[in-house]
Amino acid sequence: MKSLKTIAFATLAFALFSCGGDKKTDSIPTASSETSATTETTTTASGPADYDPKRGLGPHENVDVSKFDPAMAAAGKKIADVKCTSCHKPTEEKLVGPGWKGVTQRQTPEWIMNFISNPDPMIDVDPELQKQLELCLVRMPNQGLNDTEAREILEYMREIDGAK
């Protein structure tokens, strides 16, 4: 019985600390603090009434994905290796957060970029993200991505899903 309590406590501790929290990301510099400030202002002023489930909340409205860019996808993979793969796998398999396979087929490019560049406002209002939070038990931290980095990660996600 004592070992069961120890295992339960260790599992809870892992879930709480696995991806860090907002305090860790406060010190991450961004390439464009002006863009981050604009994003923050835009998204925090929005609420559930402003939420568009096809676009999410944020500044990204029309993301051109008509042509695949392998160099951008390679840059996105490098960023993902540093900031994302401790919680996400490029497969359908859940790690801490959900796997990325198929995400570009389930969500629009605008939604993905708005979510990965500033997840907090969307988690607060999106019912699907709230369900995901109940499954994962860890809120996705804001990684401080600028628009270019978010676009590169999107292109890497597109590559995972077979874009050529």
Rank of each mutant, 00 (worst) to 15 (best):
M157Q: 01
K54G: 11
G47S: 14
E159L: 00
L57P: 00
D22W: 12
L129F: 06
T108W: 06
T39L: 11
P141I: 15
T91H: 02
Q105M: 03
G47H: 09
L137M: 13
T44I: 08
S117T: 07
N62K: 13
D81Q: 14
F115L: 12
C84P: 09
K131R: 13
T44L: 15
L129K: 05
R106W: 02
L12P: 03
T85E: 11
S86Q: 12
D147V: 10
G102D: 00
L145W: 07
L133P: 09
N62Y: 07
E110I: 01
V138N: 14
T41E: 15
E134I: 07
G21S: 13
A150D: 05
G20D: 06
L16V: 02
M140T: 08
F68P: 07
D124L: 13
T91R: 06
Y156W: 15
A13T: 13
E93A: 14
D52V: 11
N146E: 00
Q132N: 08
D22Y: 03
G56L: 04
S27G: 07
T30Q: 00
K5L: 15
M157E: 01
S66V: 02
K78N: 03
A15N: 13
D52S: 01
H88L: 06
T42S: 11
V65I: 14
K83R: 03
L137F: 10
N114F: 08
K94S: 00
E61I: 10
A73V: 02
E149F: 07
V63W: 06
S18T: 00
V63I: 15
R55Y: 10
S33C: 10
T91E: 07
G76C: 05
S66F: 08
M113W: 01
L4D: 02
E134W: 05
T39E: 06
A10H: 07
P127G: 04
K77C: 07
E110C: 01
